[in-house]
Amino acid sequence: MVEKKQSLSESIRKLEGIVEWFEGQEEIDVEKGLEKFKEGASLVKSSRARLKEIENEFREVEKTLDEA
């Protein structure tokens, strides 16, 4: 779960990095641009997969105050 969360945060940050790269280029190198786009497209896909609606899990904790 924790890795998953980090990877979503990271994916989006990476994705935004790619967008920034695109926006920072005066003249986009075709080969590099296509490579970046490919990476971006797969990040969009994986991020969307985690961002879509997923049912929550709910549990009530066991109060174990014996150890307290």
Binding site: I54, E55, N56, E57, F58
Partner: peptide
Amino acid sequence: VGRHGYRISLYP
């Protein structure tokens, strides 16, 4: 809270 795949642990 929405359905974003949370795991919610309630301490009543």
